[in-house]
Design a protein around this nucleic acid. Structure first.
Lengths: 141, 141
DNA sequence: GTAATTCCTCTAGCCGCTATAGGAGCAAGC
DNA sequence: GCTTGCTCCTATAGCGGCTAGAGGAATTAC
């Protein structure tokens, strides 16, 4: 156990950049750690775990507000996990929506590129499709 | 042909909101239109086409810088379409990357939710997986 | 003639950082 | 001791792509 981890070490270990750690403290996602006499932040293992948690959740695309909820839940492990489950489910639905719209987009881009005759721009499908929304099957949000 | 379209009409026709149209003018994506005596913007059909082009490209996820390139290309239709093609291809690659990572994420979220025993949070996989990056197969960017 | 709507400009805010400026602290080599 | 170079500190501003609000002028509808 170490309780004298500098912000730089915490950044290297957690993979969260130094300014981002300070930012997380500022927005209350990470508790303000004790300081040395020289006013430097000192982190301990629990801070590293929290940072890892935050980083992973961010990588998974959770918003900060969702992470806040998850962190609050995590701190009371005796509670039912229904709320954590709900946050994750909500996020899953969001991810599925994004995948669907990106897949439609991919198809459209492929048609655009395929249709490009590699000749004069006047016949270029890329420009044409973008210029005329009616020419594509892109889902109208 | 109409050359006296108000910003509100342009917004209704193009589906781009009024403040967004003004914003596009501000960042130079849309030319500053002539004004009436009462200082109101007056648009014409070519502005509407440009707005539709921008809107569609944004819906397709193109960044403003990419749209700027496409608009510049569009204005010189005698050029080769190679550059437009390149912008679209680049964007396609980006979209494919996003789909891949979102699909991996979806799988992970599903495992998390499935693993949740709906009992005490202490055994909840959602929290557990988020707390320990090693427990998942999420691609390390 | 007046009330409602639309328009104008300007500024600030959103998210999740990232970058910069201008210092202070600290460890290592000479 | 002294300097070099690294890390750290705070504070502020910027990114993209808008969106929201204030406060006012012009136009339109009745």
């Amino acid at each position: 156990m170490r309780y004298d981890i500098t912000i730089g070490e915490a950044a290297r270990i957690s993979g969260v950049k130094v300014p981002t750690i300070r930012y997380y403290e500022q927005i209350g996602l990470l508790p303000a750690p004790p300081r040395t006499e020289g006013n430097r932040r000192t982190y301990d293992d629990s801070d590293l775990r929290r940072l890892a948690f935050i980083r992973h959740a961010r990588e998974l695309g959770f918003e900060v507000s969702g992470i806040r909820t998850l962190l609050a839940l995590q701190s009371d492990l005796t509670q039912s996990c229904g709320a954590a489950d709900a946050v994750a489910r909500e996020h899953l639905a969001e991810v599925e929506k994004r995948i669907a719209s990106l897949t439609a987009l991919k198809a459209e881009l492929e048609r655009m590129i395929e249709g490009c005759s590699h000749g004069r721009l006047a016949e270029c499908k890329v420009i044409e499709v973008l210029a005329d929304h009616g020419k594509c099957e892109h889902a109208h949000h």
